[in-house]
């Protein structure tokens, strides 16, 4: 039986350069997007931890102050000072600030969740419940100051016991108190059905509170499109159009995850179109910025020549 399995261990056959290039561009954009998302989530978690620690410290200070005030009548001078006992600082168990998923997983702030073909149920710390339909995508926003989540895609049924906020591309849907309502994203806008309670629904207009993540996604899509346009132009042997698109990508998004590819493509396009001096300049710049880049040998050859 093991020999049968080993028949699966074949090498992937080569494929057309165009397909491989397209996959590379897409994957690199996705990698950049995910790195940025993770960094943002990490920063938020850190801020939250610091905030929580300060809040706990403040609570302890208030409690100690209140205790001191209520015991002011005691004649302090008559009692010898006693060493104070260490103050136990309460800690918050991680699961208290987590959303329990019906499949057993636990979600924390800024964790995303996507359903495939099966529905899932989420239980918040306040016991509010959210039922996600298949093919829905949400992210937990806040769990402490308020309970809030973002719904990017699909449909959810919220049964909340306290105030609850659902962020959507078309605005926030807010329950002030216990309520039951359904939010569905249709053409990027929320469609809300209220079964019980007081729920504020946003007016349908262009997304005023589009999240930073959404903006980043659009930006990356734009970067991807510019690189793709340049690659298409190159395939048509239209190097001028390729250079124009790459110029735009490089000047508009100097920190793009596709920057290296754009610089390599521009260097090649200059060389193909006979603009050798500019190709050499580009190669030198590439080597300075990406000394270990994948096209370093090609760039070095250009500079030396």
């Amino acid at each position: 039986m093991s020999d049968l399995l080993q028949k699966l261990a074949v090498a992937a056959p080569p494929e057309e350069a165009e397909a491989a290039e397209n996959r590379r561009a897409r994957a690199i954009a996705a990698i950049g997007r995910t790195i940025a998302d993770e960094a943002r989530a990490k920063r938020t978690r850190t801020r939250f931890r610091v905030g929580s620690a300060l809040a706990i410290a403040a609570a302890v200070a208030i409690a100690v102050g209140a205790y001191a005030l209520t015991h002011r009548t005691t004649p302090i001078a008559k009692t010898p000072p006693t060493p104070s006992a260490p103050i136990a600082i309460p800690t918050v168990a991680p699961e208290v600030l987590a959303v329990r998923v019906s499949n057993g997983a636990m979600l924390h702030e800024h964790d995303p969740l996507e359903t495939s073909s099966a529905a899932l149920a989420l239980t918040f710390p306040s016991t509010s419940r959210v039922d996600m339909t298949p093919s829905s995508h949400v992210m937990i926003d806040f769990l402490v100051s308020e309970e809030a989540m973002t719904l990017d895609r699909g449909e959810i049924l919220v049964t909340c016991t306290h105030a609850f906020r659902v962020r959507t591309p078309g605005g926030d849907v807010v329950a002030k108190d216990a309520a039951t309502f359904d939010v569905k994203i249709v053409d990027g806008k929320p469609r809300v059905r209220i079964d019980a309670g007081d729920v504020l629904v946003p007016a349908i207009k262009p997304p005023p509170h589009a999240s930073a993540q959404h903006r980043d996604t659009s930006t990356l899509a734009d970067q991807n499109a510019l690189l793709q346009t340049a690659l298409d132009a190159r395939r048509r042997n239209d190097d001028a159009a390729a250079i124009a698109s790459l110029d735009k990508l490089i000047s508009k998004y100097p920190g793009s995850p596709l920057l290296q590819d754009a610089r390599v493509e521009r260097m090649r396009a200059y060389e193909r179109s006979g603009r050798h001096a500019e190709a050499v300049t580009e190669a030198g710049r590439y080597l300075a910025d990406f000394p270990s880049g994948y096209a370093r040998d090609e760039a070095k050859a250009l500079v030396i020549r």
């Binding site: 950049g32 960094a39 920190g255 994948y294």
Partner: peptide
Amino acid sequence: SGDTRISAA
């Protein structure tokens, strides 16, 4: 550290 320039590598 959140450095997106490493994506291609």
